[in-house]
Design a binder for these strands. Structure first.
Length: 489
RNA sequence: GGGGGUGUAGCUCAGGUGGCAGAGCAACGGCCUUUUAAGCCGUGGGCCGAUGGUUCGAUUCCAUCCACCCUCACCA
């Protein structure tokens, strides 16, 4: 006796028990399948004519009993297909097995011939069936699917199963990364893997995740960027190198940020940031066309065209253009007066350049809808970028913006070890003042570039954000299979 | 962290000026040999997110908490 009224799970557990008593293995090790359901659909006419007997597999997604016959749909990763079982054809034992023991959610192996029903639907007339796997929990309701946002993420497999667009989005994501690889590989770039567990973290401004290695009794960080290791690879003589991988930043979560995210970084010796701009532009256009079939991209009701060259405008110029003011020589008082006047929040302890950056983010960044390169940033905001020749406080850096999002960040890399050491020291001063995101001194990296680093350009691009735009997804959560969630209870 | 919203059956959702909790799908029993949101008859299923308060009585009112969503801030 069940202590509680039977729910669907206990009903199915009882069926499992009965199947076992009937000598039926509910989880056999082997399945036989002649083809996918999609292939079967393609060969349907041919197989009807030749009266071919075929065997296919799939999950039962619906079931309609009609007394002495029954319809159901089965589904595999490629398509769904209707099956039709008749008592007089398969006999009482098998018919009752199907009728009583098989539930929506179970996996079946079906053998039979093909025909069309009165409504012309392609159907398998079942001659034999085998249970491949019994599901104990029911699938979500058949035509609404999973709606609750929490459950869609918590039970992503059900979300994918019930909503083909969700599954499709992750297939497009895979296509985007393989397209990037194909493109770069064809141009002679070499893909490498660098450490995720790092003794020191660097290459970006962010708070890291910390962990500990037991055997070496050593504190380690999860990387926030691949930058400093990829530069070592450049020093080692691979002149065109890239890595696609996860970075980890211990920051807040919102629709544009996730604590673990996928980044591609590309480095090229004997190139500068103009070369990297060309590569970035060509790469974005290439993956957009390969994955969407067009250079007209629609994202959240706004269309942008990738057909013409992307705009290129300098940091100071775009600020002047959008605000009507030139802040380049502004005093601190003037900057603060503007921020107050425009009701832009700021940290009163921040440096002048950070205040300018606030103005940039508020008045410029979110309005950069068309694909745009912003170039030539203030040096203070870019401790790993090379000074632009003939200037004192500008570096050769660009960021790529699209739909108001920062998609990529790149520079002509700083390869002067003396200058690099000075920049690290500047960062350490900021850190001493309490800026937890300032970079840390990395002697091992300095040693590497003291051995000689060629002139190099490097670029980092957020893969999740590109996928978001190209799949017209509102949130990063929609393009990450299993976003972090708190446990139930 | 601030502000707003949501939380009721396995799923999708109703409901209630405070008085034994509702539907469809799914499940269970029965009828039904071309259905497809199959149909018809019947049945079971609920700590109404959690805890506390007010009350004769709370799923409903109040407070706190938890989870998720949106938004602002942070993420140079």
């Amino acid at each position: 006796m069940e202590p509680n009224p039977p729910n669907e799970r206990t009903v199915r557990l009882n069926k499992l028990h009965q199947l076992s008593q009937m000598g039926i293995d509910s989880y056999p090790a082997r399945a036989k399948s002649d083809m996918t359901l999609k292939n079967l659909l393609e060969k349907f006419e041919e197989f009807v004519k030749s009266k071919k007997t075929i065997t296919v597999c799939g999950r039962v997604i619906s079931k309609r009993l009609h007394g002495k016959s029954a319809f159901a749909h089965i589904k595999d990763g490629s398509a769904s297909f209707q099956i039709y079982a008749k008592l007089d054809l398969i006999g009482e034992d098998k018919y009752n097995l199907f009728k009583k023991m098989i539930d929506v959610g179970d996996f079946l192996q079906i053998t039979g011939t093909l025909f069309r029903t009165r409504t012309e639907e392609e159907t398998i007339l079942v001659e034999d069936l085998k249970l491949l796997s019994k599901a104990l929990l029911p699938l979500p309701e058949k035509w609404h699917g999973l709606v609750d946002e929490d459950k869609r993420i918590r039970y992503r497999y059900l979300d994918m199963l019930m909503d083909s667009e969700v599954k499709e989005r992750f297939i497009i994501r895979a296509k985007i990364t393989s397209t990037i690889r194909n493109y770069l590989d064809s141009l002679g770039y070499i893909e490498v893997e660098t450490p995720i567990l790092q003794r020191l973290y660097g290459g970006a401004f962010a708070k890291p995740f910390e962990t500990h290695h037991n055997a070496m009794d050593m504190k380690l960080y999860l990387r926030i960027a691949t930058e400093l290791y990829l530069k070592r690879v450049i020093i080692g003589g691979i002149d065109k190198v890239y890595e696609i991988g996860k970075d980890f930043r211990n920051e807040g979560i919102d629709r544009m940020h996730n604590p673990e995210f996928t980044m591609i970084e590309i480095y090229q010796a004997f190139a500068d940031y103009y070369d990297m701009m060309d590569l970035t532009e060509n790469l974005v256009k290439y993956i957009a066309e390969k994955t969407t079939g067009t250079l007209k991209i629609n994202y959240q009701e706004t269309t942008t065209e990738l057909t013409k060259p992307f705009a290129r405008i300098s940091f100071w110029e775009i600020i002047e253009k959008r605000t009507g003011r030139n802040f380049r020589d502004s005093t601190r008082d003037q900057l603060i007066a503007y921020l107050e006047d425009q009701h832009i929040e700021y940290d009163p302890k921040a440096s002048n350049y950070v205040l300018v950056d606030e103005i940039f983010k508020e008045r410029v960044e979110r309005a950069l809808i068309e694909p745009t390169f912003i170039i030539d940033y203030p040096l203070e905001l870019s401790p790993l970028a090379k000074r632009k020749s003939g200037t004192k406080s500008i570096v050769e850096r660009f960021e790529f913006f699209w739909y108001g999002f920062e998609i990529a960040n790149a520079f002509t890399e700083l390869n002067d070890p003396i200058d690099q050491r000075a920049r690290f020291e500047e960062q350490m001063k900021l850190r001493a003042k309490g800026n937890l995101e300032a970079q840390v001194m990395d002697e091992d990296f300095l040693t590497a570039i003291e051995h000689g680093m060629p002139p190099t350009a490097g670029m980092g691009m957020g893969i999740d954000r590109i996928v978001m735009i190209l799949t017209n997804s509102y949130s990063l959560k929609d393009v990450i299979l299993f976003p972090l969630q708190r446990p139930l209870k």
